[in-house]
Lab assay of single mutants.
Amino acid sequence: MSGIALSRLAQERKAWRKDHPFGFVAVPTKNPDGTMNLMNWECAIPGKKGTPWEGGLFKLRMLFKDDYPSSPPKCKFEPPLFHPNVYPSGTVCLSILEEDKDWRPAITIKQILLGIQELLNEPNIQDPAQAEAYTIYCQNRVEYEKRVRAQAKKFAPS
């Protein structure tokens, strides 16, 4: 494992614990031996107030490669969400998460999670990743928002 990646992720964890947006979660997972795995984080993004996503808490896994922060983490909703920019596998399609697009090593975990929260309610229809959600979003916004509200209710924190 890269010392650069681990040191950056340790800084990220410290900064997150000191200050993070209300309702968001970002925690490194534990290895079988109980030690912390900084390369694999369990996160959760709350649906934004005043949107059909409100009330939901959407679980996301963030996986970092050894060359982080040169390369972005892979962000994957578990379980996958109904959304035009979420692949059926759950992987998020967002330009700041793509090395050859808008990724920059200075982007923080907090910025990534806030960017994904923004994307939930403002899909990028130029870059669809899920045919069904994309089609319904474009053709029947009322039905799309109904499905999103049902999903938010399903993923409401207990």
Rank of each mutant, 00 (worst) to 15 (best):
K49L: 06
E132D: 13
W53C: 00
N140C: 03
Q151E: 04
V27M: 14
L97S: 12
K30I: 10
L119I: 05
V142Y: 14
E42T: 12
F77I: 02
N40W: 05
I116K: 04
I109K: 01
W16L: 05
E143C: 11
L38E: 07
P21I: 00
A26K: 05
L6H: 08
W103E: 00
E132L: 12
N31E: 11
V142L: 12
C43Y: 05
K59V: 12
M62T: 08
P105W: 03
L120N: 02
C138H: 08
P80S: 13
C93P: 00
G23V: 00
G23S: 11
E145A: 12
T135W: 13
D127L: 00
F22W: 04
E54W: 06
V27N: 08
E118R: 11
Q111R: 15
L60D: 02
Q130C: 08
L81Y: 02
E118A: 09
L94K: 00
P46M: 05
T51H: 07
Q126H: 10
K48D: 03
N121V: 13
I116T: 14
T29V: 07
K101G: 09
G47V: 00
Q11Y: 13
K65S: 13
K153I: 15
N40R: 09
I45C: 14
I112D: 05
N140F: 01
E98A: 15
Q117G: 12
D67T: 10
I136N: 07
Y137W: 00
W53P: 04
V142E: 13
E132R: 08
N140R: 10
A129F: 00
F58P: 06
R104I: 01
P69D: 03
E54I: 08
D33P: 01
S70R: 09
M62A: 09
Y134M: 09
L63P: 05
P52N: 15
L97P: 11
E118Y: 12
T108G: 10
I136Q: 11
R147S: 08
N124Y: 09
W53V: 05
L57E: 12
D100M: 15
F155D: 08
Y87G: 03
P79F: 12
P157N: 10
G34L: 07
L119V: 07
L60N: 03
L119T: 01
F64L: 09
P28N: 06
K59F: 13
I136C: 09
Y87H: 06
L114R: 09
F58Y: 13
A150E: 10
K110T: 06
